[in-house]
Amino acid sequence: MLQKTLLALGMLSMPMLSAYAQQVVRPSSPSIKAQGRVDTTNPERYRFDYPGVRFTMQFSGSSSIAAKLKGSAQTYFEAFVDGKPALDPSGRQAIYRSFGDTTIVIASKLAKNQPHEVILFKRTENLDNTPAEFMGFVVDDKASCSPAHYKARRIEFLGNSITCAFGTESKDIHSTFTAETENNYLSYANVLSRAFDADANIVAHSGRGVVRNYGDKSMVSTKEATVPKLFGRVLDSDSTSRWDFKRYQPDAVVVNLGTNDYSTWPQPLKSLFIDGYLKLIAKIRAAYGSQTQIFCIVGPMIDEPCYSYVKEMVEMQRNTNNDSHIHFIGIPKSILALDKDYGASGHPGGDGQKKMAQIVAPVISTVMGWSYSRTEMDDIKGGQGFYSREK
């Protein structure tokens, strides 16, 4: 397993850019593929705060690749070159955060006569209401750049801390959550996306529910946005932002909600919860049409009555609203082993996320008629996360 190093950046980080003259490929360049909900209002500075947002570019003729970005104390990134994690000079997998405008050197000493692909990936959710900003990639002046290919398949995921991958790289169930241990790349959502060779959009925030957020003293939350309200936003942290649904029309939508509605008291009345969920389904249908397949997941952090309520909601949508393109998937708590499948605060660790994907993938495969690779989800490590937590 790879060890990982945190590079807290206020200056150019090692490794260094090449000695050649440099060019900046702006975020609005057709050579860059932006995946996820991104505010493109300013073509020089793209803003984003949902987990799993990534920027991809193919290039050749450059001995180094860097990214220009701005983050915050609780915004973490990682990068990949040619499908492999970017490393620091000591050979550890590097994760990054930035407190101001920063140039992150992702890789150097690359073969200039070979094509390469770079991915800059946002590991964390919106933890401090500070959108990150991406200002482009930096390559050698005479490098040739081209866009990565968009996938033929598209999936959107709506969820809470499980979909965010809250504490996925924590040591065990007793660990205290830190932003550094949240790695959306390891979430079941991204495991499934890679297995199906699909592009993914993720709209998720820890603690949020359908009608009630975690710990709210009321049955219905009004102070903080629930996920149905986040669904219409391009930025989680900006209630006035509006997402243009025409920018991303998924083939399938996966919804994993209800855990926060029913994990603490007072629990919402069944009628309130089902009505709120049906309204969310109506929003999805209005945005993506009647033929998009919707998969409603429950688990593995919650049990009854949430299981029965979501299943009943799905049956109501199928029978009363004549919607045959909605499906229920229950993930039991028993799939997670206490000693190896949990991360911080009882959330699924890396192996737990893969076990979730193992249950969900066959259902999506059957309904969509999609084949999938089992490599991503079958590689169980016998411990938390994908990378070693050794420092």
Score class of each variant (00 low, 15 high):
276 G>H: 06
248 Y>F: 14
269 L>V: 01
116 H>A: 12
197 D>A: 10
19 A>M: 12
253 V>K: 03
13 S>I: 09
64 S>M: 03
211 V>Y: 11
14 M>F: 07
303 D>M: 05
191 V>I: 15
294 I>A: 04
356 M>Y: 01
181 T>I: 08
303 D>G: 10
259 T>F: 08
343 G>R: 01
50 Y>V: 12
311 K>I: 00
7 L>N: 07
307 Y>W: 10
76 Y>K: 11
21 A>K: 09
205 H>I: 12
66 A>Y: 02
275 D>S: 15
362 P>T: 04
327 H>W: 06
360 V>P: 09
140 D>C: 06
20 Y>Q: 15
40 T>D: 07
218 S>L: 13
68 K>W: 00
17 L>R: 14
312 E>I: 00
7 L>E: 10
67 A>C: 07
320 T>H: 12
255 V>K: 03
346 G>T: 00
225 A>P: 13
357 A>M: 05
15 P>G: 07
96 Y>N: 12
22 Q>H: 12
51 P>T: 12
291 Q>N: 13
283 K>N: 04
167 G>P: 13
181 T>A: 05
348 P>H: 02
302 I>A: 02
317 Q>Y: 01
213 N>M: 05
94 A>P: 09
173 I>Y: 14
224 E>G: 09
57 M>N: 08
100 G>A: 15
97 R>G: 11
281 I>Y: 08
300 P>G: 06
54 R>F: 01
354 K>F: 02
285 R>I: 01
183 N>L: 05
179 A>D: 06
22 Q>G: 01
70 K>Q: 15
379 D>K: 09
286 A>L: 06
303 D>P: 04
331 I>K: 02
343 G>V: 06
141 D>K: 15
260 N>L: 03
102 T>N: 14
141 D>H: 10
192 L>N: 05
166 F>G: 10
96 Y>D: 14
